[in-house]
Design a binder for these strands. Structure first.
Lengths: 205, 205
DNA sequence: GTATTATTTAAACGAACGTATGAACGACCC
DNA sequence: GGGTCGTTCATACGTTCGTTTAAATAATAC
């Protein structure tokens, strides 16, 4: 087993620290000293801090994205809403050790997040939007958008809030049993989507 | 109509910029030059940047908190779950022009958020936890904690994501009709809470 | 083995940051 | 009018940041 390359050691250390401390709060010096490499190595391998952040993120998003589509394709056409939600949530929850990075990215650097969304996530998102829409008849585009937005909110917030959950539940490792987390997200999400669907006519009455 | 004091002009400019650009990304020089005051005025009126951020936040949280309790107290003891959710969501959604600040705070400076939670929000949160619990019989402490956590996620994410909603729905001002936003949050939240409650025995089987 | 390329290193750059200082200014009281 | 106190001001301090440079070292090819 050969040592991980400098590039990989930077990526690993960056993933950990960026998720833990935030994007702006983590300096390149934090990362390189944690990785045991020289500061200038970041510039050599990634050019800038932004490109390093993108590389860290894409390394996890790429396979997660593929898994999502594989699961969705394997679903029966008449599979219930809950199964689609499972395909949506499970790969993200299982993705990485340092899940808070998603939320950090989303709030601290929406420009970078948007960039990744356009290049890596948009087709994926449209496939899921279609799968949800199919199982929530009578939902117009705007309302569907809001509900998808709520789903993303559930997910991001859950992944970001390990310390809060720890304090709230007393469980020292609230995100340990990932399947239970997925089940909770699926149940809550399905209930919200269905109740929301029932309200549509109220808004447009 | 006398001019607003230096202190207020700093608070106003800070609220706008901190929400727009983020906590770390906004410098005191950004704030003071937007407010048209001297840089050192921050130090004079608030001592440090952290204390300024706290002051900005507390100025909005204080009345919002009081309104929340007033609404909850005015509720009939047998009011439905949706009404409690309304008391929970409405004051936050209506709170300030620059709502993203809540999310910024939550992700970028959880230490400050925690500090405000302990000193300003905890009793409030317990009142609501009790009101929810009362209407969701058979929910253990842990599961209730998860569901409250999901509610907070819905709220924060919604307030933070105006630009995303804009892109997603095509609506140029998706957070303009605040009552519609509250209605959507209430419907989705109630559906999620109830569906979650129905799943409890599965987890503990 | 030497030449060429790829990688790592120490050191420094200029810029931006939060904070601190001491002088100037203004309103107000005696 | 002089003195006091709260406020505003220009300016500077020390630090840290992302980025760059050029030399040193390792790896590869001929």
């Amino acid at each position: 087993m050969n040592d991980p390359s400098t590039k990989d050691r930077i990526l690993d250390a960056a993933e950990l620290l960026l998720a833990e401390q935030g994007l702006n709060a983590t300096s390149l010096r934090d990362i390189t000293s944690a990785a045991g490499v020289n500061l200038a190595a970041v510039n050599y391998h990634f050019r800038t801090k932004d490109e390093l952040i993108l590389a860290v993120f894409i390394r996890r998003v790429e396979p997660m994205n593929q898994l999502r589509l594989t699961l969705l394709d394997a679903l029966a056409p008449d599979a219930p809403l809950e199964d689609v939600l499972g395909c949506f949530f499970r790969p993200v929850v299982h993705m990485a050790k340092h899940k808070a990075l998603v939320a950090r990215m989303y709030v601290e650097r929406r420009d970078l997040f948007q960039q990744i969304f356009e290049t890596h996530l948009r087709p994926n998102a449209q496939r899921f939007a279609q799968a949800f829409s199919q199982r929530l008849p009578g939902l117009c585009r705007v309302e569907l958008g809001w509900r998808l937005h709520f789903l993303v909110g559930l997910m991001i917030h859950t992944l970001a809030a390990e310390p809060v959950l720890r304090a709230l539940s007393g469980d020292p490792e609230p995100l340990k049993d990932l399947d239970a987390v997925v089940a909770r997200l699926v149940a809550f999400g399905a209930g919200g989507l269905r109740a929301g669907a029932a309200m549509v006519e109220d808004f447009h009455a």
